[in-house]
Amino acid sequence: MLDDFANQFLPSTVGGLVNGSIYALIALGYTMVYGVLRLINFAHSEIFMIGTFASLTVLLAIAPSAPFTGIALVGVLVLLIVVSAVVSGASAVVLEAVAYRPLRKRGATRLAALISAIGASLFLQELFALVVIDWLIDKPGRNQASAPRFVARDTVFEVGNVAVRLDQVIVVVAAVVVMVALDRLVNKTRIGRGIRATAQDPEAAVLMGVSIDNIVRVTFMLGGAMAGVAGALYVMEIENTGYMIGFVLGIKAFTAAVLGGIGNLRGALMGGVVLGLIENWGAIFLGSQWKDVIAFTVLVVVLMFRPTGILGESLQKARA
């Protein structure tokens, strides 16, 4: 048992970090929307799914015959990330306008918005399964869709007994860069101040001249864009997607957001990485079928002692 642990610890850590980065990117969208609107946007997992299909479609159009290297690789990677971020961000804005804004304007309860979120989630899944996937990539909507390889699985460096591959490095580095940029944006810019003000006290923010509608739109857009980046990285790493892809990942990312402290950007990052690592470490002892059980046990235990998550604070206080 201890021997297993020694052998599997480092490879599991690498795998956990890669998964955790993707969880964290998706978790940002849950956390930002919650911070501003106190709403769990359950359709966020579908925004991620839309991001994977945006990347997949571009990738199929490029149709790489062999993995890219050098400048071409960076170019394609940036292209995919930008396209997915734009498509997902725009989808999130539309989602907000269609599924949430009308409810908000009429002062509906939060419960109504939650039901609307679940409805939007199912609607988007089926829309893709029945129409969009077939139209985009000409494959039956409920089958899995494979992406061609464009990043070689070359070893970049070795730590102990584990070879860290190029694609894994790209996922982690890209995720960190994007998250630092978002953190900067929220903490240092004018629009970020508006987001934080709205999160803290919407009424006072209005009195100070902040346009709530704009702030909500921007929040959805940024959260959606993060999910789009996650989608692009996912397609590069797993090379596979489908209409239900957001379901499990969405639940995991939501868990990560709660684990880190929902409404808190750095908490989402931390929650994602912690969740990814604990899942993989736990699997060493108990087997991979226990991954989900381990993840949720940790969540319950953390919430017992820290009901607001590991970092606990919310978006408005994250001004360091």
């Binding site: 239900m244 499990v248 060493i284 991979s288």
Partner: peptide, 11 residues
Amino acid sequence: DASDYSSTVTK
């Protein structure tokens, strides 16, 4: 429903 099998592959 899992799509990442890294822990299985490690084993």
